[in-house]
Amino acid sequence: MNLTGKKVLLTGGVRGLGRATVEKLVAKGATVCVFDIDTTGLTELAQQVPGVGAIQCDVSSADDVARAMGQYHEQYRCADVLVNNAGILSSAPLVRITPTGIETHDINLWNKTLAINLTSVFLMTSAVVSRMVTTRTRGVIVNISSVSAGGNAGQSAYSAAKAGVNALTATWAKELSLLGIRVIAIAPGFTETESTKQAVSEQVLKETISRVPLRRLGRAEEIAQAVVAAVENDFFNGKTWAVDGGLVI
């Protein structure tokens, strides 16, 4: 797909990987609209990247997605590409031994992580694909996964959510390819973003870098570049592309 003039809807585009992807897509000539929960961030994004649409949305809420998609479709008719990027990094072990006994993984953190990283992908994709089908749009769905989908100690919820994202990618590719809709995923490795710094300790990051054959973290623009390349390649479908410096080989 040539991105010039194509309409791209991206979730979680205010900062980090999402923001880098927005800039890359705009540079390719795409018409980009961002869904994000951060109203202030959306206002700043719209000011800093002219032409980018901004709609406030909690993508983990079915009602809010329905409202925001109504607004989007009124303005843009139908997206050619959906990038499901919104997510949170959460780290917690299944059980933790404390001086007072054993603590288990917090259920609220589990539910929140699954809602934002997995349910949002389901809600957004079903809304966008419904419109693609009714307008016979041959589009692309890009899910941002993670190398943690293969299982990462200390990230039960996050790993489970991202494994779910990979499963949805394969399932939907099988369901939707006949309609000309491709579904793909990008699985970044550890990347230099604020959310990584907040969620992972410096010591863990150092240890992780030592396990990356390239001996460094990924850069947000490298992940964004992969998103663009995957959208542009019309034969890439149903697969998850790990962009991780060789961490998982």
Binding site: T135, R136, L178
Partner: peptide, 21 residues
């Protein structure tokens, strides 16, 4: 419903047309 879409694609290909929703 999945087979129906397969049928749609087969009809579009076989008859050289594009069906509306």
């Amino acid at each position: 419903s999945l087979k129906h879409m397969e049928l749609v694609v087969a009809i579009e290909t076989g008859y050289g047309l594009e069906l509306t929703f």
